[in-house]
């Protein structure tokens, strides 16, 4: 009898541990996927609908690195570099002309997302490509087997997120970016080179999307539409976490991960998605009320 009870508890504990690890993995993935959007949308006010495509390009960098026979880990900094340059170029030729014009930003970045997907199709075709898991196998922790690569993904993703957030919130560069967002004219009058700063900030936002792309590439198929599946999650995280503080990315990712993991466990993925969207709507409404209250 006691042996049966013991086994049942152990089974429950293992199931709970597995859910916690799945939740942790989802939290880290959401955080790294939303980090770039937190910078470009949350901090700079650019509604970047091409953020998913930046992730897609990062995933293709991982694919190219694999095809070249290099280690997958080369692709993480390489994707960051490639996307930094791509983001910087896009800021110079497109984004800087449409700051503070949300309608134009939506149209322009939507167009950009189509262009990037078409370019990916031209270069790599529509076919699904795969990047093999660089660390196959599972590691046992607390009596549960969990994919080793997921542990590494959690460490690299959260490490990247925390370092980036510290850089943006503690450094003079981050302060300068926040000053530009607060008042561009005053920032210029304070001697800040707003053009250069915006290029760097947008480039860093794109670079973090590149890191996200390289990290998620081994988790599924690499194809031109890969970014479309990540874009809603990224917006969800930024909306739930709040626009004004970059640390909100971590809060948003945590809340969304807990809600989704719990609902997927007890119900299904559809209810998890519905709950996440309701949460986003409620958060938007609360933010609007608090802004209205603050300005009243």
């Amino acid at each position: 009898m006691s042996r049966t009870t013991d086994t049942t508890w152990r089974r429950r504990l293992n199931a709970l541990t597995l859910e916690l690890l799945n939740g942790l993995s989802l939290f880290a993935t959401l955080a790294i996927v939303a980090l770039g959007l937190g910078i470009t949308f949350g901090l700079m006010g650019v509604i970047n609908l091409a953020h998913g495509e930046f992730i897609m390009v990062g995933a293709y960098v991982a694919f190219v690195v694999h095809e070249a026979g290099w280690s997958h880990w080369v692709s993480v900094p390489l994707a960051a570099g490639v996307l930094f340059v791509l983001g910087a170029v896009i800021e110079v030729i497109l984004i800087r002309r449409i700051y503070r014009k949300p309608e134009l930003t939506i149209l322009a970045t939507f167009g950009l997302s189509i262009v990037l997907r078409q370019l990916a199709e031209l270069v790599f075709s529509k076919d699904f490509q795969s990047v093999p898991n660089p660390v196959p196998g599972a590691t046992e922790a607390l009596g549960v087997l969990f994919p080793t690569y997921r542990y590494i993904l959690v460490a690299v993703a959260l490490g990247t997120v925390v370092v980036t957030l510290l850089g943006f919130t503690r450094s003079k560069f981050g302060l300068v970016v926040r000053a530009i967002v607060a008042d561009r004219d005053l920032a210029e009058s304070a001697g800040i080179r707003t053009g250069v700063t915006n290029v760097l900030a947008f480039g860093l936002g794109a670079a973090s999307a590149g890191v996200a792309g390289a990290l998620v590439a081994p988790l599924g198929a690499v194809e031109p539409n890969l970014g479309l599946s990540y874009l809603p999650s990224a917006f969800l995280v930024v909306i739930v976490g709040g626009f004004s503080r970059l640390w909100g990315v971590l809060v948003g990712a945590l809340v969304v991960a807990v809600v989704q993991t719990t609902l997927i466990h007890y119900y299904d993925a559809v209810w998890a998605l519905i709950a996440s969207l309701v949460l986003a709507v409620v958060m938007l409404q609360m933010r609007r009320s608090s802004v209205a209250g603050a300005t009243a």
Partner: peptide, 8 residues
């Protein structure tokens, strides 16, 4: 020249 240049 931009304001930042004049400040410098």
């Amino acid at each position: 020249r931009p304001p930042s240049h004049r400040v410098r």
